[in-house]
Write a protein that binds this DNA or RNA. Structure first.
Lengths: 261, 261
DNA sequence: ACACTCTTGTGAACGATGTTTACTTCGTGA
DNA sequence: TCACGAAGTAAACATCGTTCACAAGAGTGT
């Protein structure tokens, strides 16, 4: 019934079990990618595996549980991609020119933030089905943001990837932010609570700018993936880069933007 | 087979037909709202209407056609709401103070733009199921943005509500926009084509700002409706208003924002 | 008034789906 | 060795969209 999350601990049975569990998710993902959300059916998965549908209930509590597990995996894969892009920039930029010779401090962090954002879009655009599962319309009956859900912690990890870079950037290279008076008074306690609970240790206006930037990126990428931008643009990548650079300028990264453009 | 779009033209049979067609959509919507996307099934609709499922095929080509028709209706309802809000502001503000006495020209248009945007969010938040259908994950098998689809022209109408206000605002009260050099070169021809085909007669940077603003609004509202913002905010309305005002300032409407805040 | 046509609706059926239940088979740990 | 528990199966139930042949009815032309 309950999915044993044991990694590969001993008892060869559990290893077999984990392998089968993984195979189910692999087949499910292949079906999802190749034939769309509608093809993500237990029976189809079972058929592809040469097994009957009820057998899958030994590994997942049902269809929605499997979807939730997939979502968690996708979240983590996306985070991995973003962190990989971040790490790559770190070595590249860092090795080319010693940090002391740079005109501005925090250039590496800025590049990492850009790279992570680009990686977010790249993964999303190249994995539209997976993206839809985690960022699209909530699947009826699947509370992705429920506690006790693996997808929930994965989602929080995702949030922290951006947040950590933002915090670093602010620490090493603060930028202009709106005045507190420009923020809706009712927003402040919410930001305050998020700062504490989410571990985003920043001044409130910076927290707002962070959320605002994330919403801009999310909006643009979501529109692109869902085809809600085709009414205006045939290829959304240039628009994304333009928007990213505009955000960069907003964060006082004009030099980094000029370097990348 | 084909849905007769005749309003209520003569032949009492077609009136009856239109009424039944409307009842189907009404029942479908009630099911959608009360029980979610999954409950939007032909059989459930038929059951509620005291009729068998195949009867519905006399009115709609199938499940996806019904969904597309609903989407078109929702689009139009949303547009109506936005235009109503726009019209209300026009009379209010216009009657209070004669336009010549205002400090800045175009204040009415600015208020209308704000009101329409707020109306967009209000409708979206109070109609999450309907919103999901038109702005969420594309339903597999339903090309909402296919030509020949009623939803397509409704979608274009929606785009024009914002665009028209933007054009008016720019005409009467131009604002600061990014330099052409800040736009990705590959973006320019796309903007140019959209300007012509979409009838958005504006300088290219203004077209970009328009799309950027729309993406920001879309992103924030989508995140709110889909619950992708709950990780940080318990009530997204203050954040929305803050973002809206920030956009207003970006469009040189600091006075209007101050007035509304 | 009659017959004819076209519309509307029905019932049965087909192939899918998720899920539950009882039953079998078989590996593994004591 | 042997019993326990895990893994898998077959059958069944309730759904779903969709198609088909057919019956009843309204509307119409003569």
């Amino acid at each position: 019934m309950t999915v044993t999350t044991s990694p590969d601990a001993g008892t060869r049975r559990s290893r077999q079990r984990a392998a089968t569990s993984q195979e189910i998710k692999d087949v499910a993902r292949r079906l999802l990618v190749e034939q769309g959300t509608a093809a993500l059916s237990l029976r189809a998965i079972a058929r592809k595996m040469g097994v009957t549908a009820p057998a899958l209930y030994r590994y997942f509590d049902g269809h929605e549980a499997l979807v939730a597990a997939l979502a968690a995996d996708f979240y983590n894969e996306l985070c991995d991609q973003m962190e990989a892009a971040e790490a790559a920039v770190g070595s590249e930029v860092g090795s080319e020119v010693p940090d002391e010779q740079r005109a501005e401090p925090g250039t590496v962090v800025a590049h990492q933030l850009m790279a992570a954002t680009i990686a977010f879009r790249t993964w999303s655009v190249t994995h539209p089905a997976e993206f839809s599962l985690i960022f699209g319309t909530p699947i009826p009956g699947v509370d992705l943001y429920d506690e006790t859900s693996a997808a929930c912690v994965a989602g929080q990890r995702f949030g922290l990837v951006f947040a950590a870079l933002f915090i670093q950037l602010w620490a090493v290279r603060p930028f202009a932010v709106p005045d507190l008076s420009e923020l809706d008074p009712r927003l402040l306690p919410q930001l305050e609570e998020y700062r504490e609970r989410g571990g985003v240790d920043l001044p409130l206006p910076v927290v707002y700018v962070f959320l605002s930037c994330w919403a801009r990126i999310y909006g643009l990428v979501t529109m692109e993936v869902f085809g809600h931008l085709t009414f205006a643009l045939s290829d959304a990548e240039p628009a994304f880069m333009t928007e990213l650079f505009q955000i960069g300028r907003l964060l006082g990264l004009a030099d980094v933007v000029a370097e990348l453009a």
